[in-house]
Simulated scan of single mutants.
Amino acid sequence: MKRKLWALALMCVLALPLVACSGGTDAQKPAEDQSEQQQPVEQQATEREITDMAGRTVTIPTEVNSVYCAVPTGEAMVATLSPDKIIGWVNEPSAAAMEYLPENLASMPVIGGWMGQQVTANMEDIITLDPDIIIYVGTDGTLGNDDVPDQIQKETGIPVVCASSALERTPEVYRTLGDWIGEADRGEELATYYEIKFAEALEKIDAIPESERPTVYYAENSDGLATDPTGSSHTEVLDYCKVKNVADVEMKSGQGRTEVSIEQVIAWNPELILCHSGFVLADDIMNNPQWADIQAVKDGEVYTTPAVPFNWFDRPPNVMRLLGIEWFATVCYPDIDIDINQEVKDFYKLFYKVDLTDAQLEKLMNQNQLSFE
């Protein structure tokens, strides 16, 4: 019996090194695993610094899912770039405009904005909506000296980025905004199209002889008796179409518009009158006896700017100005090689993802039939 117990004890002693070795190996594994788990994991940045088009350094989120545009010009661009990211309007879009815009934009709250000297924005509403960034658009001549973006940013605590409203910089703005809000591919697509079509239109306009360029009066205000001169940010489309703007008036900044008398317009005697549809329609002038002796009225050369979903010319100056140039070029130069119907269809297909019917196309071209309420 003692021998059996001694043998059993010996077996246990001999087995101890094996168990110790085996246990030691297993004990080391969790330590190694724990060491691996403790290796530092690189955190993805949630913010980045950008330099906006006013030269300001702004820290913005790396992922932007919501945008508020402080001026209508920005809305028109973001509506074609990434409409699902717009969370509020400066002004309520018209029923006519909503026919061509995504349905979700119809339910967005109206919170006002900054329009020249007119400010209608509600700061509390902006803070409540809490967009990832605020987009502020202005002219190249004023952006660098405008303290409004910094004021908005200070009062809301939300990053404000500035972009240019200059027509020729539209492709650059598409690429820049596309990068800022995470829509680089879409921004590049729209920018490339804009560059090509803009260059083509200007090349065809430049080929028109000087002798064929009409004199034009740009009618604004409800009575048509206000206008802007050549070189104004409000007459860029006219300038690119190389017409002769008859308005010999003061250049005003901001909202522009210099009031004139009917006697001045009669003295200028333009060959063509272009009415800004936000103020006055062609029919208003054609049916007004005090305009009857002006050459444009006698010849029936009075037109209204198309304005849906955003004005093709101005107020706000926006991406639709490419179509404004193409359309007005066909008005001023009937023989120019621009198929305006096809250009409009192509533009709406790409920028608004809308396949225009012939009825819609006709309605877009005849603004006297539209309601802008």
Rank of each mutant, 00 (worst) to 15 (best):
229 P>S: 14
17 P>W: 05
358 D>G: 04
336 I>V: 15
364 L>M: 13
225 L>N: 03
246 V>M: 04
248 D>R: 10
49 E>S: 09
256 G>E: 06
108 M>Y: 02
371 S>C: 11
335 D>A: 09
266 I>H: 00
291 W>V: 01
276 H>C: 06
129 L>Q: 11
113 G>E: 05
311 N>A: 07
310 F>G: 00
202 L>K: 02
211 S>W: 01
292 A>R: 13
104 N>W: 01
368 N>M: 04
224 G>Q: 06
164 S>Y: 03
307 A>N: 14
47 E>D: 09
114 W>A: 08
150 D>G: 06
265 V>H: 08
66 S>I: 02
33 D>I: 15
349 K>W: 08
74 G>E: 01
336 I>F: 05
200 E>K: 14
355 D>H: 09
370 L>A: 08
239 D>S: 02
84 D>E: 12
38 Q>A: 10
36 E>V: 12
187 G>V: 03
262 I>P: 03
242 K>N: 05
354 V>E: 10
235 T>F: 08
73 T>R: 12
7 A>V: 13
224 G>W: 06
115 M>G: 00
145 N>A: 14
324 G>F: 05
26 D>A: 11
140 D>F: 03
56 R>V: 09
302 V>P: 03
233 S>E: 08
272 L>Q: 08
223 D>F: 08
340 I>C: 08
44 Q>R: 11
35 S>A: 15
325 I>Q: 02
132 D>V: 06
13 V>D: 01
180 W>S: 07
207 A>W: 11
107 S>M: 01
311 N>C: 09
351 F>Y: 15
273 I>L: 04
238 L>H: 03
359 A>K: 11
215 T>M: 04
316 P>Y: 02
16 L>D: 01
302 V>I: 12
332 C>M: 12
130 D>V: 13
82 S>M: 10
123 M>T: 09
365 M>C: 08
32 E>W: 10
170 T>H: 02
152 I>V: 12
300 G>K: 12
218 Y>V: 10
306 P>W: 02
252 K>Y: 10
5 L>G: 00
219 A>G: 03
338 I>M: 10
13 V>H: 02
1 M>P: 11
216 V>D: 01
254 G>A: 15
133 I>C: 04
220 E>S: 07
115 M>R: 13
4 K>Y: 12
262 I>Q: 04
128 T>R: 14
184 A>F: 00
42 E>C: 10
50 I>P: 11
196 I>P: 00
215 T>W: 07
84 D>C: 05
24 G>V: 08
297 V>I: 14
326 E>H: 06
256 G>T: 13
346 D>N: 15
309 P>N: 09
116 G>H: 06
95 A>S: 14
293 D>N: 14
16 L>Q: 05
123 M>S: 04
269 N>A: 10
81 L>D: 02
129 L>M: 12
365 M>Y: 01
300 G>D: 02
30 P>I: 13
129 L>S: 11
72 P>K: 08
5 L>D: 05
324 G>K: 08
170 T>S: 09
350 L>R: 07
319 V>G: 04
128 T>E: 15
93 P>S: 05
244 K>L: 12
167 L>G: 07
335 D>M: 00
136 Y>I: 11
342 Q>V: 06
176 T>M: 11
69 C>S: 12
294 I>V: 13
